[in-house]
């Protein structure tokens, strides 16, 4: 559905967009063309309030295309009249899920740059989670062997792909084969192998720790200086950069919850463990931030063990 409100004066761009959102059929994308800059703030407020997702693209000086859609958006390619396809992605090759799977069989790694919660819900089996918008997460993961490439990107939208391309360029010497057309949705439709990563809320983590079960390991993968500053009493500590070399310290039969400050790096750690055959994995998405917010006790100033 298309709505052209160029030239309109305030408040008609917003008012007409809201009316169109109300009438938008399920699953369709609303495309609003506007030259009214204040609409770039008002329309997203109205759209997110109604459960839509929003993507803004500048298409002229000054003209914008605002895409308003529900649910899992599809990236370039995909089926039918997909408006997002026109966005174009950093000159990178679009790979069909089958092509990507064939490359994985030859040794390529799928790097999943979506939010950890999305990665947790469903991801390409053996893909590495890397939250590309977080500089900290990218730096911490820099030395991991699966990321030495060649890589295939799985993203939610083109912005993430562009950012990944920029980060890879920065790192140098890593070859980027392309991105998976249609994202996780297309992958699933093809019936290719997928996996999930369960997340653990702070309350669940607390309950597990309180039970004192020998069957459960809380694995803190932050930097040594973060660990020294503050840590959870019962946690085991292996920084992400050392994880691959110290896998023998972990028991594959035990439940392992990976832990960092915000669930980003811990998602990467869990995805590395999954590649090495660990199956009982959990990600503490709220991380130390959530632990502190819940007012739970920490040890401060301890030495790294």
């Amino acid at each position: 559905m298309k709505l052209d409100v160029r030239g309109e004066i305030c408040p008609y761009p917003m008012l007409m967009a809201v009316e169109a959102m109300k009438k938008l059929p399920e699953g369709e994308v609303l495309e609003v063309l506007t030259d009214h800059a204040p609409a770039l703030e008002s329309i997203p407020v109205q759209a997110t309030r109604r459960g839509f997702e929003v993507k803004i693209e500048k298409i002229g000086d000054p003209e914008w295309r605002i895409l308003i859609f529900k649910g899992e958006p599809r990236i370039a390619g995909g089926s039918g009249e997909n408006v997002l396809a026109s966005v174009g992605v950093a000159g990178l090759q679009a790979l069909s899920p089958k092509e990507a799977w064939a490359l994985v069989a030859e040794g390529a790694t799928v790097v999943d740059v979506r939010h950890p919660a999305e990665y947790g819900a469903l991801h390409v089996r053996d893909s590495i989670s890397l939250i590309i918008s977080s500089k900290k997460a990218v730096e911490a993961a820099a030395g991991l062997s699966p990321l030495k490439g060649p890589l295939i990107i799985l993203a939610k939208h083109s912005g993430q792909i562009e950012k990944t391309v920029a980060a890879v360029k920065e790192a140098g010497q890593v070859s980027l084969l392309g991105y998976i057309e249609g994202g996780i949705e297309a992958w699933r439709m093809e019936g290719l192998p997928t996996a999930e990563l369960k997340s653990l809320s702070i309350e669940e983590l607390k309950a597990r720790l309180d039970s004192g079960s020998e069957d459960f390991v809380l694995l803190d993968i932050r930097l040594p200086q973060e660990w020294e500053l503050m840590r959870i009493p019962a946690a085991k500590f292996i920084p992400l950069s050392e994880l691959e070399g110290r896998l023998n310290e972990l028991d594959k039969d035990k439940a392992i919850a990976t832990f960092c400050d915000l669930g980003f790096r811990s998602a990467t750690a869990a995805s590395v463990l999954a590649r090495h055959g660990f199956t009982r994995l959990f990600n503490v998405i709220e991380g130390m931030t959530g632990w502190l917010k819940a007012g739970l006790p920490v040890v401060e100033g301890g030495n790294a063990t």
Partner: peptide, 9 residues
């Protein structure tokens, strides 16, 4: 296998 890539923030 390497392909030309370009990225602009």
């Amino acid at each position: 296998m390497e392909r030309e890539t370009s990225a602009v923030p």
